[in-house]
């Protein structure tokens, strides 16, 4: 049971729609540590691209939603155990994950992974030291490449490792690294990018196809009327649809 209140998406539709069964309240699980996808804002509430997206999806699917945060490492076990109903946490759709949970259709294009290094540094991709957050697709990618992988528990620490010279570069989602590179003169993105992982989708339990269908329909309607593209552009997450 990993869930703490961070703010409820109070929606004006609750009075008019009566829900039978389990989903009178849909609990949305997120990590809250991965801007711009999701993060905790100054007020202590979940914020970011996925917060706005999730609230809009819930409005369109006429659901009452509630936001909870959970550690990344146990985010899937807690979903299948029923502690919340969806994962909306910048989670790339991969075959491994798809065997355990179901995904909605992707709501971002596949986001390339970029390398961040000290400005002007030459990085040797075959013999150098590359940092990544433990248990991410990027860590798995470097582990099977020629470079030396060094893993840290949080994304913050991977950036710090590049700064203090422990690692030559860090590999992470482009959308996460880009604002950091823009705001720090001593850091820069390298030209090389890696295409790993599919787009990002919402995770739901395999037994919960009713909920999956509702969110699929809502995502489709946002894709069709262009609101999803507008959101993607606002938060600068990859190309639109």
């Amino acid at each position: 049971m990993k869930s703490i209140l961070l703010g409820t998406a109070a929606l004006a539709i609750t009075a008019t729609v009566a829900f039978a069964g389990s989903h009178s309240v849909v609990r949305m699980g997120t990590e809250g540590a991965y801007p711009p996808y999701n993060f905790i804002n100054d007020a202590g509430e979940v914020d970011g691209f996925e917060r706005e997206l999730g609230d809009e999806l819930c409005a369109r699917a006429e659901l009452t939603c509630e936001w909870v945060t959970n550690e990344w490492d146990s985010i899937i076990p807690n979903l299948v155990s029923g502690n919340y109903d969806t994962i909306i946490a910048g989670m790339s759709i991969t075959d491994e994950r798809d065997e355990v949970i179901d995904f909605t259709q992707n709501y971002t294009q596949p986001d390339p992974s970029s390398y961040l290094a000290l400005d002007g540094a030459e990085v040797d991709f075959d013999g150098g030291v590359i940092a990544a957050q433990a248990n991410t697709i990027q860590a798995a990618f470097i582990a099977s490449s020629g470079a030396t992988l060094v893993e840290f528990a949080t994304p913050d620490e991977t950036i710090a490792a590049v700064r203090n010279g422990e690692a030559d570069a860090v590999l992470a989602d482009d959308a996460y690294l880009r604002p950091i590179a823009e705001e720090n003169a001593d850091l820069a993105l390298l030209d090389k990018q890696e295409l790993i992982g599919g787009g990002v989708g919402m995770g739901v339990r395999e037994s919960d196809s009713e909920l999956k269908d509702k969110f699929n329909a809502a995502i489709q309607s946002m894709k069709d009327d262009g609101t999803l593209n507008a959101l993607l552009a606002k938060w600068e997450i990859g190309p639109g649809f």
Binding site: L5, R27, V68, G82, V100, R205, E206, S207
Partner: peptide, 23 residues
């Protein structure tokens, strides 16, 4: 499969209970 599913009234706390009960 991988999902742990019990009937709704057996959930702890109930799915529609307020957040402070979950906490």
């Amino acid at each position: 499969g991988n999902d742990f599913v019990v009937c709704d009234i057996a959930k702890l706390p109930l799915g529609n209970s307020p957040q402070w009960m979950h906490e």
